[in-house]
Simulated assay, not measured.
Amino acid sequence: MNMLSVTLLSVSLHTAAIEELCPWPESGSQQQRYQQQLSCYDQELVKSRRTLAQWEQHHEFVLQQHRQRTGRPAAYNSFKSSQQSFQQLKEQQCRWQYQLQLPDVQLGAALYKRCQLQLIKQRAEQLEALVAQ
C-alpha cells in the first residue's frame, strides 16, 4: 500500500469517526440542525485542540532535552517548522472547502469545522504514534 492510499484511508476513517461523533440532527428546522451540528463540531474541536497541544508539548519537551543533551538543534527546529506548516496547511485546506460552498455560509462553516477536526485528529494521532516508536 503506497502513502497516498494510506493517507486516503486515514482521511476516510476520520470522516466516518467525525460523522459518528456529530451526526446530522434529525429534528428541528434546517437552521436549528446546522446550529446543533456546528455546536457539536465546536465542542469536539476544543477537545481535539487540547489533545493536539498535549502531544505537541510532549514532543517539544523531548526535542528540547535532545537539543540540550547533544547540542544539535536541528530536530527541534524542524519540529517547530512542521508545527507552523501544519497550521498553514490546515487553514488553507479548510478555507477552500468553505469557499466552495458559498453563498451557503452555514454549510461552508460546517465543512470548514469538520475539515479542521479531521486534520487536527489526524495530526494528534501521528504525534501519538511517534511515542510508541
Rank of each mutant, 00 (worst) to 15 (best):
L117Q: 03
T15P: 10
Q99I: 02
A53D: 12
V105S: 13
L100C: 07
P103V: 05
L127V: 08
A74W: 10
R95W: 05
H59T: 05
L102T: 08
L45M: 04
R95M: 10
S27K: 10
Q101T: 05
E20R: 15
G108D: 01
L127T: 06
L100T: 15
L9D: 12
A75P: 08
E125N: 13
D104P: 04
L119N: 05
E56D: 02
Q84E: 11
Q31E: 14
K121F: 01
K80T: 05
E26N: 08
T70K: 07
C40H: 01
L13K: 15
C22V: 00
L52I: 00
E56I: 00
L8Y: 11
S39Q: 15
Q93P: 02
A16Q: 13
L4Q: 15
R123V: 04
L21S: 09
Q43H: 14
Q84C: 01
Q30L: 10
S48L: 03
L119T: 03
E60F: 08
R123H: 07
K47A: 14
Q122L: 13
G71N: 05
A124I: 11
W24L: 03
E19R: 12
Y112C: 03
S5D: 15
K113A: 07
P25S: 00
Q43C: 09
A53R: 09
D104W: 06
T7I: 15
A16I: 11
C94Q: 00
W55D: 03
G108N: 01
L100R: 15
Q31D: 14
Q101G: 04
Q92K: 11
Q92W: 06
R50Q: 14
H58W: 07
R123T: 07
V131K: 11
L38I: 13
R69I: 13
P25D: 02
Q65A: 13
L9C: 12
Y34H: 08
V11K: 12
E91K: 06
Q32V: 05
K47T: 10
H59N: 04
Q36C: 06
E60L: 12
Q116R: 10
Q68W: 08
Q64T: 10
S27V: 11
C115F: 07
Q93T: 13
Q99F: 06
S10D: 12
K47L: 13
Q30S: 08
L63H: 06
L130W: 09
Q101M: 13
Q65G: 04
N77T: 05
E44F: 10
T70L: 05
S39Y: 14
R50M: 11
Q30T: 09
E19K: 12
H66Y: 12
L21W: 08
I120L: 02
F86L: 01
T51P: 01
A16L: 14
S27I: 10
Q92I: 02
M3Y: 11
H14K: 15
A75R: 14
D42C: 01
Q43W: 09
V46G: 01
W24P: 02
C22F: 00
P25Y: 02
C40R: 03
S12P: 03
T7V: 15
G28H: 01
N77M: 07
Y98A: 06
P73E: 09
Q92S: 12
A75N: 13
K90T: 07
V105D: 13
F79Q: 03
Q126A: 14
P25G: 00
P103E: 02
G108P: 01
D104F: 08
E128Q: 10
C22L: 00
